[in-house]
Design a protein around this nucleic acid. Structure first.
Lengths: 214, 214, 214, 214
DNA sequence: TATGAATGAGGATTCATTCAT
DNA sequence: TATGAATGAATCCTCATTCAT
């Protein structure tokens, strides 16, 4: 019996124990494979991804890999899932501290993204590869679209809250601003040579524009 | 004998007209090939690019294609060249009208890019593919980096001029702002679903932030 | 994973029997391929060797061939190995009978070579192809040089022994004589039309020159 | 009108002028091509011979090459012709000095070959390539066979003369000895590492065996 | 004679995927 | 679950040769 087809979707924290009993090892194995695939995409692009290399990277036989992912396509989707969840962590982290002002929340969010962009650019590079690929792969598109919508909604919420609290400019269009920020970050990963300081200051200037200055 | 290297030694500046007659066909042929390749990359990605398809698309034999581009790599570089020149036209066009104010020049530039993004998104999609690829291909990187530097310089010049004329805010950092705009546009092409109006309004809001409002 | 390199790490001296069971088939498969390649070289030359034909000759898929020999080059080296070992058998056979006189040993050796030259000229023809190729292929050169050195040493040993026993002429230079014999046999395979009797008598006359006649 | 098909065979000294008027340049052109081809075979083998490279080496267009040699095959035959004539010079040179003893004539002949083997091993290497190829190419076989027969006859004549003059051993079989010498030299070119001195001394020892020592 | 563009069959190699064990 | 041998379609590229000019 094969194991892909996304039959192991996002396990909620509550029922991990239940399934863990029978499939913890199995799920680990999948993780190893996905991680190996991720690393290869980061260094060689989706174009240079070879199932054999993935298997080797995960320390297993090619046949075994196909036991876990019946198709290369499915494997790539696995990577997409992995990345989406990895970046989605942001929002969760932000929601913990509810007592912060929207300005602080947004700043922290942008700072976090900036840090990732600098510290682990692979994630964004792989993300870029996958976004491009999503144009020709419905399954990937679905996942990314959902993540994108979630992100946008998160930004809009913060912005609206900030505007209501008169912290952000009153004439700010939340949707468009969210849109601008998302584009900016997606574009930042396509920047040919990314310099830490430049990026941070650009973001800072950007944040400045948003503030209500009267 | 072969025709890659992107160099046409026979064409000295002085006798372009003379030899152009003889090489015009040759150059046309290369163009046809590049266009066919461009179209295929747009629809299937660099990953899905097949030399045979390119040859077929250009209505020629596979051997003939290799007569013009000795390598798939070289062909892709040809596409990069094509795109870069295609987008670079913008600056030239802008420089014609010297009597416009920097605000108008910038607006026109951004409007032009916006239009392209909406009308011919393929160009940007292919651009995205190639930027990603440039990470692993020095030759492509060189070309794109040059184009990028040129673009940035152009933006900085316009911004500095505008600041000096007190049209843009005095606290604007030209380099960072140029950087922000470039990232924004690169990111816009990675936007999963791009809506015309949304894009235009986002750009407009962006332009608004730059103005000196006293 | 792949099987070239001519190394079989799993086969330690101690557990050859054990693993041999598992790898015997694998080794057989390689043999089949090498034999098919040998046959093709014999009839069409290295120049006319096509991996597809080899695969077909070995009754397997082209992909399978590449599973065993990751490169045409490696395959050719496999053929070199095969031939070298095949001819090297001579010396071993000779060492069995220690009670023979050097004259007899040498005679038997030369007779053996003569027989092979007549009965299985393909081996020598292929050998010739490979020697010529060794000029441009280090890997092949290494193998052939080793075999050549071994052969020369063997001849020298026999000659020295024979001289000491006063069976061969005292003024014989062992190294040069070995050299002469080796060149003669290599040249014999390049002879345009080789006649059995002529060859045998030439060898006989040659042997006569070596004897101590007082 | 094409020019191959061996329609320009060995022009005798006498009628060179006649044909030279109309075709000297043409013949030169063919020579250049053949020389270029020879050089390429020497360095890359017949296997590595590419008509394009030959044309480039001869400083001409590929189309032009095909004007002179309508086929790669024909071109190779041209090289065979060239080599055969080049080595055949030996005999002519020997026939000039008729007053020498057969021993001296043979010595000179062998010395000449030895020198060539050392000074211009390419010639022999190419010869080897071509001999091997002759197995599968009737046209080449014909040419080489003729040259070989001529060479053998020359050697036999010298040997017979020497035996009659009691300079060579009476029990020498001229045909077999000629055979031995020819094989030796052909084999010498297949020697993996040829050392000048070793070769000369081997030949000297060989010559010694032939002498009548009473 | 000379040029160089065009042809297309063919060749080495790759790689996702399957299957028997 | 795990292994590794097997498959074969697909891919990039080569090269002898032709042909219009």
């Amino acid at each position: 019996m094969y194991q892909d087809d996304n039959t192991y979707p996002h396990m909620d924290a509550e029922n991990i124990q239940v399934t863990a009993a029978g499939n913890a090892g199995s799920e680990d194995r999948r993780q190893e494979i996905v991680l190996a695939a991720f690393g290869l995409i980061a260094s060689k692009g989706v174009e240079g991804l070879r199932t054999r290399d993935v298997a080797a990277g995960a320390g297993m036989n090619i046949g075994t890999l196909y036991y876990y992912f019946s198709t290369k396509e499915k494997l790539i989707q696995g990577v997409v899932d992995y990345i989406v969840q990895h970046i989605a962590v942001v929002q969760d982290a932000g929601s913990e501290a509810a007592e912060k002002t929207p300005v602080e929340v947004l700043h922290q969010h942008l700072a976090h993204l900036t840090r990732m962009l600098i510290d682990t650019p692979e994630i964004f590079r792989v993300m870029g590869e996958l976004i491009l690929r999503s144009e020709r792969d419905q399954a990937i598109y679905q996942i990314l679209k959902q993540a994108d919508d979630d992100w946008q909604q998160y930004l809009i919420n913060v912005l609206v809250e900030g505007i209501n609290q008169r912290l952000f400019r009153a004439d700010l269009d939340p949707a468009l601003t969210a849109h601008a920020m998302m584009s900016f970050f997606k574009g930042a990963m396509l920047q040919l040579c990314l310099q830490t300081e430049e990026l941070e200051r650009t973001v800072a200037q950007f944040e400045g524009w948003l503030l209500d200055r009267r």
